[in-house]
Amino acid sequence: MKAYEFLDHTADVKFQAYGATLEEVFSNAALALTRLMYPDNVKVNDSLEMHIAGRDLESLLYNFLEEFLVLFDSRNFLLAGIEKIKIDRQEFKLVAEAVGDRAVDYEIHRGIKAVTYSDMFVRQDQDAWIAQVVLDV
């Protein structure tokens, strides 16, 4: 199974992320976001614990992805990947360990302004989870 796939959108960037579990689809969505900013592997020199809450799966994903934009702007953190992630599906809460590096050491390809709710969904299709996100770039 592919981790994620980019789709056509007139002005912004749209992608779908896939995973066997909800945790995996969230991790792959984060990976898609960081690949847009930097297309190659990012070294692991830093690690952060994240606690995110939402009101449903979509807002949990929105807040999770947005955190990487905040970390990038305010702490110069470029995501390499998600090491550990646990999602509470009843309370819509997430705990994760994100690893990455100092963004200033990379030639960033693209700025992402914001995560949007446009055409967003997180759902289970038979055995797999799928999430769709449009980013304002």
Binding site: V70, D73, R110
Partner: peptide, 17 residues
């Protein structure tokens, strides 16, 4: 505060896109 943290180092920058 989050918005301020994002913006404080960016006054006088064009940005991308």
């Amino acid at each position: 505060q989050r918005a301020k943290e994002r913006g404080i180092g960016q006054l006088g920058t064009l940005g991308a896109g």
